[in-house]
Amino acid sequence: MIILDNVTKIYENSAVGVKNINLKIKEGEFVFIVGNTGSGKSTILRLLLKEIEPSNGTIIIGDKDITKMSKESIPYFRRELGVVFQDFKLFENKTVFENVAFAMKVIEESPRNIRRTVPNVLSTMGLENKARCYPKQLSGGEKQRTAIGRAILNNPSILLADEPTGNLDPKTSWDIMKVLEEINKNGTTVIVVTHNQEIVNSMQKRVIQLKDAKIIRDVVKGGYEE
């Protein structure tokens, strides 16, 4: 369960990130967050990642109030989340295998475990033949699959995706969205920020629409706009 209770984020330059957000997302849900540029979508994801602190309100993830979490426990908290971005954020000097494996290195898993687990995830992502490639040798879709592979490697309970198809062509965007849906079917809560109207309209998932830092629409099954 994710609960945002009256959450406001005012940035240091007094820009309003989000204002008085009330939101509940149940375990295993698939949620689209839509809205214009600057409406506060990324701010919500960054609050959930504890990359930024809310100016007001409380955020509960699972059974933890993350606004009261100590600095030392942030890394361990983040290991229960997966996150992917529009720009993939891959290590350019590491291969696909190493990029994915890094998520396990960070949590100090044994090389044996890493060698056993990573190939499974690569094949789930359809990247078996790309294991030794570097990011610059990959297509956009393959890069995003690598990033998703890294994000789900440690079986997170929540996957956050900030415009994951923003740099991809329509067909590849569909592929990636199908991958995210598949991950959701296996029980992971998936929250996707997107501008892709066609996909949102056809998938008929829960849609939360933001405008000027506020939620203006929250429907259980819906399209990109009313």
Binding site: P75, R78, L81, V83, K89, F91, F102, A103, V106
Partner: peptide
């Protein structure tokens, strides 16, 4: 810098 950011997103401790 970017790599450090990514590491932190993945849940790396400061010492890592």
């Amino acid at each position: 810098k970017n790599e450090i950011r990514i590491m932190k997103y993945i849940g790396a401790t400061d010492w890592f």
